[in-house]
């Protein structure tokens, strides 16, 4: 049965009607129109759908709506402040750190969580932080360079 939900996403309060078991992913993409969070596997194994829940990266595909009531959700769209891009976005552009870009949103989320707690990560720490994210295009090294660049700048 559909229920009424109030979510805090990227600093905004939004309301929607959905069944409590609905994965957060579909509420974000289809109810709130935040398409940057993407479906890849549906069971927490690829990272394409990662969002920050109270600052921790978590798979939106595997997170039911009932579990996020009262929590603070940040999606890739919420990393930038208005028109101003997050340093990670700029670093990814500077490094041209993507091929198809489908995995990128989730990788930015994992990277943002890392930089929030570790201002100067080593390359190894970056790789470890991104290990739950899959990239099929082989853009790994560019992305790692981009995260290190964002940390420097």
């Amino acid at each position: 049965m559909a229920e009424h939900f109030r979510l805090t996403v990227n600093g905004n309060e939004s309301e929607l009607e959905a069944s409590p078991d609905t994965p957060l992913l579909y509420a974000l993409r289809n109810d709130l129109g935040l398409k940057g969070t993407r479906f890849g596997c549906g069971n927490g194994q690829c990272g394409a759908c990662f969002v920050l829940i109270d600052g921790h990266p978590a798979p939106a595909c595997d997170t039911p709506l009932w579990s996020v009531a009262g929590k603070i959700i940040t999606t890739v769209e919420g990393l930038s402040k208005g028109r101003e891009l997050h340093p990670l976005h700029n670093a990814f552009l500077a490094e041209q750190a993507a091929q198809c870009g489908y995995c990128t949103s989730g990788i930015l989320i994992s990277a943002a969580a890392l930089l929030a707690k570790n201002l100067r990560p080593t390359e190894r720490e970056v790789r470890e932080a991104l290990d739950r994210n899959l990239c099929r295009c082989g853009s790994h090294n560019r992305m790692v360079r981009a995260v290190l660049r964002a940390a420097r700048e």
């Binding site: 890739v76 891009l85 976005h89 990814f92 041209q96 750190a97 993507a98 990128t104």
Partner: peptide
């Protein structure tokens, strides 16, 4: 890439 990286 600008769109894809910004999550648009």
């Amino acid at each position: 890439l600008p769109d894809k990286i910004a999550g648009r």
